[in-house]
Amino acid sequence: MRLPTIALTLLLFAHAPAHAGKTLDQVRQKAQLACGVSTGVIGFSAADSQGRWNGMDVDICRAIAAAVLNDPGKVKYVPLNAQQRFTALQSGEIDLLSRNTTWTLTRDASLGLHFTAVTYYDGQGFLVPKKLKITGAKQLKNAEICVQSGTTTEKNLGDWFKAQGIKVKPVVFEKFEASIKAFFSGRCQAYTTDASALAFIRSKEAPNPDDYVVLPELISKEPLGPVVRRGDDEWFAIVKWVIFALIEAEEYGITQANLEQMKSSPDPAIQRLLGGAEDSGKLLGLERDWAARAVKAVGNYGEIFQRNVGKDSPLKLPRGANALWNKGGLLYAPPVR
């Protein structure tokens, strides 16, 4: 694993010529969208036993492939670990990074990348064994905390406990499997990662879920979203607006099932979004029905959420901060007009 990372970094940086502004042309020419995903995070991007990729991040790839290529199946999934992900995007190996990646200033401003939009509002939490009788993160004084490397998690841990004036010892593992195995064998007094994953780890990985409890505090903000290369504003706009269109579709009640009826809705906003009255696609360099194709492929944002991480999934996560702005959440898409 280490050698490919080095090879990627050195060779791809040195070889691949810069190709600003050409991503859309390239994707069309190859008739394939190269989408960087994780090596396996249930609910976001994970391959099933038949090798089919599923998850919220995967559905974003499919929606964009549908909008651009009119076929959600024309996606090449490139599984990337945390160290490889930015290099793969910078070097042009992938067209889009849709891999539970937190939007931070350092990443946005210094890596030659653009974060497009937030597709999931997450936060970092803790899982602890019930028998330690801990009710809050502030009681984790001197605790050893198991954590997987390659995320913003380690720094949040340092920052938060520094601010609380509490010392903890991180035990950092490269692989997810090793980190949870160590935690459930009792090596650490707490496990930390994004809250979306904690619920899954507790219900699916714990020997007995009732022996473990997720602490109420979230110690960080983790806005996750797809990332594109800098220097291609056209492509940046396409990715951004396909995501906005999925959120708008939920707001107007357009679903995968009622899409065809909705196309004849008298509502001008729906007409605009689905390409009835105005050609919004032309401005993005796409076909007239770009948004309708995306919704047809994966459903609106709410459907994507419920299918992958919400009530229709094993994770059963509540909408919480990921509800629409007019339903008490943070999701607010600029209007398609």
Binding site: A82, Q83, F86, S110, E154, V172, E174
Partner: peptide, 12 residues
């Protein structure tokens, strides 16, 4: 160094 790489993004 891996952690540093992830925090700073300075892979090379």
């Amino acid at each position: 160094a891996n952690t540093t790489l992830n925090q700073t993004g300075r892979a090379a």
